[in-house]
Design a protein around this nucleic acid. Structure first.
Lengths: 250, 250
DNA sequence: TGTCTTTATTTTGTATACAATATTGAAAAC
DNA sequence: GTTTTCAATATTGTATACAAAATAAAGACA
C-alpha cells in the first residue's frame, strides 16, 4: 500500500539489484535534487508526513535520508523539531567557495600531471558542446555542460576523496544558481574564462590553470554574492533567504 | 527496557535538553569514536543486533547513526548486507592527506590574515603544553595536544566550512594513528616542525607557514604510509587492514 | 480586544513487528 | 574428501505502533 510509488524512486540513473531496496538512498537522491533545484527552499521544514506521501516511502528510510543529507550539510536537524533545508547566506557561500577554490587548484595541479590524453580530449569535447550551448543561448544545457566540465577536471585529478568532497560542496553552491539570473555579459565572460581554462589544461600548464580556475571562481563568487544579497534584501531576514516558504507536493 | 543504557550515551560533552533525545547523534558519536580509536577495525561489520545491545538504543536511531557515518565516509553501506567500517588503505589515506594539505594551506593563509592575537596566544599556549608532553614522553597527552593545535590553527582561519571538512577528513586519518608507533626520532622531528609552524604563525608569515604545514604533512604521510604498508604486509589482503577482525561487546 | 491557560492536534523520536535477502550448516551427490 | 543443494537461522530493509514533545486551537479572564 505504501509501496505504490516505489517505482518513481531512484528512477533516474541508478538501478538496484532485486526489487526496489535502498529506499533511503533513493529518497536521499530525490531530496538532494529537490534542495539543489530549490523546490525545497532554504529554511523550509521537511515535514515527514508530507514527504512520505510525496516520495512513497515510509518514515524510516525517509529519516535515514534526511540524516545523510544533514551530514552532507544540506539539511539542519533541530532536536524534536525535525529537519529544515539548510539556510543559504552569503557568508556560508563565501566560505564554501573559498574551500572549493583550493580544491580546484589541487585538482588542476593533479590533472595537469596525471590526466590521460583521452580524459583531456573528452573534457575538450564537452567544452565544445558547452560552446555550442552558449551559441544557441541554451542556458539549461549550458549549465549542465558547465557543471560537467568542472567535475571532469576534478575527476581527472584521480583523487576520489577530492571528487566526493567537491561534489558535496558543489551541491551547496548549485542551490544559488537556480536563484541567480546570468547576465549576457557575465555569460560571455565565463565562456572566455573556460576557453583559457581549457587551453591551460590542454598544455598541462598547471600554474596558469590554477590562476584561471581561481579567477573563474572569484567571478562566480561575485555573481552569487550579488544574487544572494539581492534576494536577501527583497526578503525579511537579512542574510537568509526565504525562511518561510515551504514547497508542497511539487 | 531498551532505554536502560541511555545514560551512557552522549555522556561525554554534549548535554541534551529534556530527557534523552537525539539518540541518533549520541550513537553516531560513540560509533565515530570507536571507529577512530580502532575498537571497530577497518572492514569490520556493524552488526545491528550487537550494536543495539552495546549502545542501548533500538535499531532506528542506530541505523540513522550509521547512515550519517556513511555520509562522513567512515562507514560503507552494502545493499542488503549492512554497514562495514570503511577500509583504510594507503591509497585512500594518500588521497585524504592530499586534500587535507590544501585545506591546511588555506587555513594557514587565512589564519595569518584574520586570527586575533588572543587566538594565536592560545594556540601558542597549547603548543607549549605539547612541548611539555614531549619532554615528559607522555605520548597520549601529546597526541591530544597535537590534534588540538592543528584544529586550533584550522579554526583560527574563521571558516566554519573549512573547519568541519577538515575534522571529517582528520577522523579518517586519525584511525591510522592508533596503529602507527611513533619513533623517537620522528617525534623529535615533529616537535621541531611544530616550533617552526608556531613561529611562522606568530609572525603571521603566511608563505612560510604554508611551507611548514606542507612539510609537516608530507612527513606525516611518510609515517602513516609506512605503518599501513607494514600492517598490510603482515595481514592477508594487501592494501587493506584487518578485514576480518570484529570488535565484540567491548 | 488582547493575552494567558489549557486542551486538542500534529509532529517528531523511538521501539518493535513484519518481510525479504543473505548466511550458515547439514545432508546428499559426486 | 569435496562440492552441491536445500532447509534453518540470522540479518537487514521497511513499515507501523507507541510515547513525548511541539504546535495549533479554543476558551477564560482582564
Amino acid at each position: 500500500m505504501q509501496n505504490d510509488e516505489v517505482g518513481l524512486i531512484g528512477g533516474r540513473s541508478e538501478v538496484y539489484s532485486g526489487g526496489a531496496r535502498m529506499l533511503n538512498a533513493a529518497a536521499a537522491e530525490r531530496l538532494r535534487e529537490m534542495i539543489v533545484h530549490g523546490s525545497l527552499a532554504p529554511g523550509a521544514r521537511l515535514n515527514e508526513r508530507e514527504l512520505t506521501a510525496l516520495l512513497g516511502v515510509s518514515r524510516t528510510p525517509l529519516r535515514e535520508a534526511t540524516r545523510m543529507l544533514a551530514s552532507e550539510g544540506l539539511v539542519d536537524l533541530l532536536p524534536n523539531r525535525g529537519a529544515r533545508v539548510a539556510a543559504l547566506n552569503v557568508e556560508t557561500v563565501r566560505h564554501t567557495l573559498a574551500v572549493m577554490g583550493v580544491l580546484e587548484a589541487l585538482a588542476g595541479e593533479l590533472a595537469c600531471a596525471n590526466a590521460s590524453d583521452t580524459a583531456i580530449a573528452e573534457i575538450r569535447a564537452t567544452h565544445y558542446e558547452m560552446l555550442a550551448d552558449h551559441a544557441r543561448r541554451d542556458l539549461d544545457s549550458y549549465f549542465k555542460r558547465n557543471q560537467a566540465v568542472h567535475l571532469m577536471i576534478i575527476d581527472a585529478a584521480g583523487n576520489p576523496v577530492l571528487s566526493q568532497l567537491y561534489r558535496s560542496l558543489n551541491d551547496q553552491v548549485r542551490r544559488v544558481r537556480y536563484m541567480a539570473n546570468l547576465s549576457q555579459s557575465r555569460w560571455d565572460q565565463a565562456i572566455a574564462e573556460h576557453n583559457d581554462i581549457m587551453d591551460a589544461l590542454g598544455k598541462r600548464d598547471a600554474t596558469r590553470l590554477k590562476v584561471m580556475l581561481a579567477d573563474h571562481l572569484a567571478h562566480k563568487l561575485t555573481v552569487v554574492s550579488q544574487a544572494l544579497t539581492a534576494i536577501a534584501n527583497s526578503a525579511s531576514a537579512p542574510g537568509e533567504v526565504d525562511t518561510k516558504t515551504k514547497a508542497r507536493k511539487a
